[in-house]
Amino acid sequence: MKNLKNIIGVGLIAFAMSSAYSCETKSKKASDKKLFTTAIIPEAKKPAKQYVKIALLLDTSNSMDGLINQAKAQLWDIVNEFTYAKCGNNSRPDLQIALYEYGNDDLSSREGYIRQVIAFSSDLDEISEKLFSLTTNGGEEYCGQVINTSLKQLEWGKNKDDLKMIFIAGNEPFTQGKLNYHDATSQAKEKDVVVNTIFCGNYEQGIGSKWKDGAIKTGGEYMAIDHNRQVVHIETPYDEVIIKLNKKLNGTYISYGALGASKVQAQATQDDKAYELNEEVAVKRAVSKSSRLYKNSKWDLVDASEDKEFEVSELKKEELPKELKNKSEKEIEVYISEKKAERSKIQKEIQQLNEKREAYISKNQKSEKGELENAMINAIKNQASRKNFKWE
């Protein structure tokens, strides 16, 4: 009996010790796990790619035909300016442009006579196409509401290093509409979006109708332009050569996929539209097409081949152009490579000629830039410097 008690006693002591050790071990593991978890929390990384995001809000009421024509003509100047832009991290930013029209009776009254023409896009042909599609008609111009709408609908992103700007142009009081412009500009400031205002008319009149106040609220710039002013374009000995090279450039595009045929046609159509507007506009568009900002990887095999994920083996035969349908993968690769080399050569020629063209203008005549172009580029450069952008 005594031996039984001893055995039971030893067992209880062993159990107690085992339980204590087990609890200690669990506690230690939990503690170690907690320390380990705390130690591996990574620091937030900044996005590698930086963007310039510009939303153009254009008044398309009856009196704004001149403004629309300036926008059509000077889109390419703005694009060409960003060819030379560099971010604070020494990378080149991607440019995205969105377009809204407001103040047109043809638009829905429920939407405040406002329409998103195109969301943020880097497709320069489509942006040009949408600009040329705009027509004017009388209406109510609600500045606060169109700013608010663009802030809500567009993907502005949260990267503090991106350059995010609204340019709103019109000629009626900034105070019109139910949505107060103070509220709209406050929302813009919260999203790190700078609102720049362009009054189409007398400078003092724009101040009196609160266009300047609308810009100041977000650290933006107020500008007044004569939107009906005719710009004197300067011809140079290099214009005709650049336009001919542009046609050769179009021949280096290899269309593919569902978008291919229509996008090739759109490219040619926008060339024609630019030329119809003015020969100099056609030249500036050609210069844009020779830059890094004119990319069409969604429908062109040359641009698509620049993407890391691109594989010739993954191309579907039925989506290829006629000249490639019966070729082997190796033959397709060679064909793309040849077109890429040809394009690079033409683009370089255009850029070299454009340098001579700009030097000719600078030396022989005073270049009279468009009012809208001047207003936008000055504001862009001033605000870009705050984000450590530089031009080189």
Rank of each mutant, 00 (worst) to 15 (best):
M17E: 02
M376H: 01
D94S: 13
V195Y: 00
K366R: 10
L35R: 13
W299H: 06
V231Q: 15
N90Y: 00
V79F: 07
W299T: 07
E276I: 00
A261K: 15
Y84F: 15
N90W: 00
V232M: 13
S122R: 10
T136Q: 12
G219A: 09
C143P: 04
V193P: 02
T218F: 06
H182Y: 12
L58Q: 04
F120N: 05
N296E: 14
Y21R: 09
V283D: 05
A98F: 04
I380M: 06
N246C: 09
I54L: 13
K317Q: 13
V195S: 02
K284H: 06
S122K: 11
I377T: 10
L301E: 02
A73Q: 09
S61T: 13
V52F: 03
Q153C: 03
N278L: 00
T269D: 14
I234F: 00
L107P: 06
D125C: 10
K29Q: 15
K369L: 10
G201C: 07
A286G: 04
N62D: 14
S297C: 07
E280K: 04
K34F: 13
A39M: 12
S122M: 01
A384W: 05
E323A: 11
P173S: 03
Y203M: 08
K363V: 08
K284Q: 12
C87F: 03
E235L: 08
K273N: 13
L57I: 12
R357F: 00
E111T: 13
L179I: 11
W391M: 04
E172G: 01
R110G: 11
D94W: 06
T25F: 14
F132S: 08
D192H: 05
D213A: 15
D300Y: 01
L324G: 05
I147V: 15
M376Q: 05
E392Y: 10
Y253A: 10
T135W: 11
I147P: 01
K152S: 13
D161A: 11
K189S: 12
L124S: 05
A384K: 02
E172A: 10
I346Y: 02
S121A: 04
I207V: 14
S337I: 01
T38I: 14
R110L: 14
E204V: 12
A188D: 03
E323D: 10
R285T: 01
G112S: 04
G144I: 04
K130A: 07
Y142N: 12
A261C: 03
Y203F: 12
S262K: 11
L301P: 03
D105R: 14
W156P: 02
Y84I: 06
L131N: 06
Y142A: 08
I243F: 00
S305G: 07
R292Q: 12
F120Y: 08
N296P: 03
T149I: 09
D183E: 15
